[in-house]
């Protein structure tokens, strides 16, 4: 993988809420076009880290830079430019319940692209087709299944073809087949448009299918305990927790 300048740069991030520190001394880079996975056990601060990358939460200290612009700065103009480059798929899909799928996807397109309503509708159709939800534009989010909601959420996240896509546990609550289908979609998107992906997950199978590079967070040390290629880490990491994470299944029956 060729590495240019990092598209996301995290330097010495300290994150937490109020007096409780959740993450300390976090530094890593994400390079353009790679699929970068943030791993870790429950409660280690994966989602918190993602929220810091998006700018939803301000860090206690440290600097996050996205495409040369500092997320942590409180400048509305630069924040808007950054937000425009990021698409996010939330764990609960976060589709607006009062709008149809089509309207949900059209929302960012109308706001930012300045296209005619008819062109917006064409884009919406293409996005839905891309995620395999052709013909569902007039459905409400409450009328479709969880896996379809995820895909619709993905269609909304890629509505403006962002340079970076962030996923918060994309496979949470999905069956293995649906989840594999979602991984396929992520890979296709990455291949066809070169989108950089940052994915928070703990789904082992999808890590080995899609991840170029991972970091693993740990609750005890509040920091990064492993970084690199997941296949290499699985076989060669000296850290017992990392080993156990990658090889958790012990046969107890039969």
């Amino acid at each position: 993988m060729e590495k240019g300048d990092p598209i996301i740069k995290v330097e010495n991030l300290v994150a937490g809420y109020g007096d409780t520190v959740i993450l300390e001394h976090i530094s890593f880079n994400v390079y353009p076009g790679e699929i970068f996975v943030i791993l870790g056990g429950s409660g280690c601060g994966k989602s918190t880290l993602l929220k810091h990358l998006i700018g939803l939460i301000k860090p206690l200290s440290g600097v996050i830079t996205i495409d040369g612009e500092i997320v942590t700065e409180e400048d509305e103009e630069s924040f808007k430019r950054i937000i425009r480059k990021i698409g996010v798929l939330y764990q609960s899909s976060a589709l607006l319940g009062s709008m149809t799928l089509g309207e949900n996807i059209a929302l960012p397109i109308k706001e930012y692209s300045g296209l005619d309503p008819e062109s917006v509708e064409r884009i919406v159709r293409m996005k839905l087709k891309l995620v395999g939800l052709e013909g569902f534009e007039n459905h409400l989010p409450s009328e479709i299944s969880g896996g379809m909601k995820k895909r619709a959420g993905l269609a909304r996240a890629i509505a403006l073809n962002p340079a970076i896509l962030m996923f918060d546990e994309p496979s949470a609550g999905l069956d293995p087949v649906t989840s594999a289908g979602l991984d396929e979609l992520i890979l296709d998107l990455n291949k066809n448009s070169g989108t950089t992906m940052v994915i928070v997950t703990h789904e082992l199978s999808s890590i080995f299918t899609i991840a170029d590079r991972i970091i693993m967070l740990d609750r005890k040390t509040k920091g990064i305990i492993a970084e690199g290629d997941p296949r290499y880490l699985r076989d060669h990491s000296p850290d017992p927790y990392v080993k156990e994470f990658f090889n958790p299944v012990k046969e107890k029956r039969g």
């Binding site: 692209s113 062109s119 064409r122 293409m126 891309l130 073809n161 448009s193």
Partner: peptide, 11 residues
């Protein structure tokens, strides 16, 4: 060319 471009061609 991305899908917005495809939209333009279609229009």
């Amino acid at each position: 060319l991305d899908d917005y471009g495809v939209m333009v061609l279609t229009e």
